[in-house]
Design a binder for these strands. Structure first.
Length: 268
DNA sequence: AGGTCGACCTGGCAGC
DNA sequence: TGCTGCCAGGTCGACC
């Protein structure tokens, strides 16, 4: 599912929907999404108040009044829906003392929920690279990181140790807007191009957040709504359709086992 | 050590 | 209709 803009949209929705609410009951319909014993999970969450909702990369952390955190990674098909009706893919349901609910739905059961004392216990938080909107993520950082690798730039953008939060859709969109071929080796990216990459990463992600993210299949925000950025997507999943710049056909290739969409004429 | 490739799951869709 | 194979917003560990 979701990449940074979608997870950020969920985070904002949760901030509106469940901040300061206290968990009164937990129903675990499918324990496979838990990364710990169900009993331990429940015990550490019951009677806890949600005091903050934060995001790092594509992971969410709900801070609890106990000082612990409920970390949720929705992976491909997870959804956190406030006050929705239970469906076939509801894996965990949280009830609050005011009678409202938060559902964790997940078709493919790839997502993970875990209560930790400190998010630093989770490997994802240890290895993840800078947030794209952080000062530490800039053209100089990009230039020096790319210099060291021969991997294709598309694969590098997907590597969350390089930068947090970019997934398959936005990697394709960023490269299209930067007019850089997804096949270009990192070490062959010039520093002027690194500046363009930085600018496009920031602008595409910000634009996507403004539009509530992209829904290709499963993504829904915390109120169950689809994102609107799909209408602004220029290459992702548009194989065979005309490039919006030059009208040549958008092509699909496979890199590191994942689909890449791009325009061979506009992206060099 | 850097880079690539399944495995983890369920379900929708195209093609026969 | 019903089967088969392919594809899907991610991440990790096993391998070369």
């Amino acid at each position: 599912m979701p990449e940074l803009p979608e997870v950020e949209t969920i985070r904002r929705g949760l901030e509106r929907g469940i901040l300061n609410k206290t968990i009164s009951r937990i129903h675990i319909h499918d324990g496979r999404v838990l990364r710990q014993d169900a009993e331990d999970f429940t015990r550490r969450l019951l009677k806890q108040t949600i005091v903050a909702v934060s995001r790092r990369g594509k992971a969410l952390a709900l801070s609890l009044s106990s000082g612990e955190s409920l970390v949720v990674h929705v992976m491909m098909t997870g959804q956190l829906v406030v006050d929705g009706g239970t469906g076939v893919h509801t894996r965990v349901a949280f009830e609050f003392t005011d009678g409202t609910k938060l559902l964790y739905n997940d078709q493919r059961v790839f997502g993970q929920l875990r209560v930790v004392r400190d998010v630093g216990e989770i490997n994802y938080f240890k290895v993840i690279g800078p947030e794209p909107f952080d000062k530490a993520f800039n053209a100089a950082y990009i230039t020096s990181a790319l210099k060291k690798t021969s991997r294709p730039i598309k694969t590098i953008l997907l590597d969350h140790t390089f930068v947090a939060g970019i997934g398959n859709i936005y990697a394709c969109e960023v490269l299209f807007r930067a007019a850089i071929s997804p096949k270009r080796r990192g070490s062959l990216i010039k520093s002027a191009e690194a500046s363009v990459l930085h600018r496009e990463i920031v602008s595409v992600l910000k634009e996507a957040i403004r539009h509530g993210g992209s829904s290709m299949r499963n993504y829904r925000d915390s109120s169950g709504k689809k994102g609107n950025f799909k209408a602004r997507i220029r290459v992702y999943a548009r194989e065979g359709e005309p490039c919006l710049t030059c009208a040549a056909g958008v092509v699909r290739i496979v890199q590191s086992g994942r689909s890449t969409f791009y325009c061979m004429k506009c992206q060099r």
